[in-house]
């Protein structure tokens, strides 16, 4: 448990490297919600292949590394209503706010973007409030 932060830092550096590569080589912002969202609502019609290639890497590479670990437990909830509600909120929210943890967080904060910082403050607030209400008061998650 106490070495989790080291792996967190290492993983974070890798995430930054991925975002840096995408920015310097392809000239794109690495925002997961924007890359997926552009495919869903058709706004990224001209860059479909690039988006699909990025998502291909994102989906295909992690399972190659899974065998290196004894167990990879995602602790994913099995409650259908929680999954559906959470998925809808994440999809709607990220597209209304035009970014998520990777776009506003990683790419925005690092260039001191006020929008990125404000967005991060509010999604952290939203998440913390939900944990307080649904875990500590209602005990459902």
């Amino acid at each position: 448990m106490h070495q989790d932060w080291i792996w967190g830092l290492v993983g974070g550096l890798m995430i930054g490297a991925g975002a840096g590569l995408f920015l310097l080589v392809n000239g794109r912002i690495m925002g997961a919600s924007g890359i997926i969202g552009g495919l869903v609502d058709g706004s990224g019609r001209e860059t479909v292949s690039e988006r699909v290639a990025f998502l291909g890497g994102l989906i295909a590479v992690p399972p190659l590394l899974v065998p290196l670990y004894t167990t990879v437990d995602t602790h994913m909830t099995s409650s259908v209503w929680v999954i559906v509600a959470a998925g809808l909120m994440v999809g709607l929210g990220t597209r209304i706010a035009n970014g998520c943890t990777s776009g506003h967080g990683v790419c925005g904060i690092s260039r001191f973007s006020l929008r990125g910082i404000v967005a991060t403050a509010f999604y952290l607030l939203g998440g913390a409030l939900v944990l307080v209400i649904f875990r500590h008061f209602l005990g459902v998650i």
Binding site: I59, A97, S102, F134
Partner: peptide, 30 residues
Amino acid sequence: NLVLGSLLFGAGWGLAGLCPGPAMGSLSFN
């Protein structure tokens, strides 16, 4: 939109513990 959208996203993120990046990354074993 930035504030409301982020609040809504954060709420969903907290509810399931997943945001768009990890949702895709863990798709094959989730």
